[in-house]
Design a binder for these strands. Structure first.
Lengths: 153, 153
DNA sequence: TATTGTTATACTCTATAACTATA
DNA sequence: TATAGTTATAGAGTATAACAATA
């Protein structure tokens, strides 16, 4: 049989990195709203989760807290994210996307989506349906932080 | 309608980075045959293309020559790749995977495939079929170097 | 002149270890 | 003691710019 887990795993391992590289280099090539993929995802998360803590972001991204702290530093340095103290628990941090961050996020999102949609425009409806189905499945299997959350108590 | 290019593009942009992160962190966690994703792909390419030049690798990976040179340096430093002069054109370089590189490549491939297959084992046959179909489509659309090769004369 | 590759430099992403501050 | 976060340090990946060697 051809559709064992091993076969699909092999396909993933070959194709996903190639798609990823393409996305990265497209983002890099936009010379105004240039966001890296992790920065883009962080802004998107903060857009949907106002006042998230550093740990919230780390969990969502599947990163360690130091990596996340560093990542957020970069966004703050560029004025795209604001960091305030938490009113109650003073160990915590409240992260919010700034107006400037939001507009860059939207520009970048539009640009990248348009680019990807262009690439997919030559693909048949049928094949696009398979892509959407596949992404839905993969999302549940590889949800960010899934592995950690299973391990952590 | 729900399956426009835009919808599938949105899915890709959300899901692919998450899958990629998962693959990376799995590779990082194997503490003997630890290869990064680009190193892994480079070794795989050299396994299939004995004596490839630096430019060949760069094209395949969708990277600039300096980045590729650096990447290859790391593999040579670890004894996984050998660099010789080209017998005819002395500007060129012949890259080959070493025996040690091959055995690490195979171990890493087995480990990562097993990990991914495990993750996909809970997925229905139907959904795996969609994944395989999607990957086949994406491979043709995002083939490494495709963009450059179209642009370059 | 054009091609192949390297070196120099710099930034981002990521990790682990060690630390501070707060609970 | 446990939790939230930062700082220190380091390696990999990537880019652009400048260069050397060869064709």
């Amino acid at each position: 049989m051809s559709l064992t887990p091993e076969v699909s795993a092999r396909q993933l391992l070959e194709v996903v990195p190639a798609v990823m590289r393409d996305i990265r280099s497209q983002m890099r090539s936009r010379r105004s709203p240039d966001l890296t993929v992790p920065q883009f995802r962080t802004l998107g998360f903060l857009d949907r989760n106002e006042g998230a803590s550093l740990s919230d972001v780390a969990r969502h991204m599947g990163l360690t807290p130091p990596s996340t702290s560093h990542l957020v530093d970069g966004l703050i340095a560029r004025g795209l994210v604001a960091r305030e103290g938490h009113p109650v628990d003073r160990r915590r941090v409240r992260l919010t996307i700034t107006r400037s961050g939001l507009s860059i996020l939207e520009a970048s999102r539009r640009g990248t989506l348009a680019y990807l949609a262009g690439k997919l425009s030559g693909v048949s409806d049928d094949e696009r349906e398979a892509i959407v189905r596949a992404m839905e499945t993969l999302r549940t299997v590889f949800a960010a932080g899934a592995a950690r959350q299973t391990v952590v108590k």
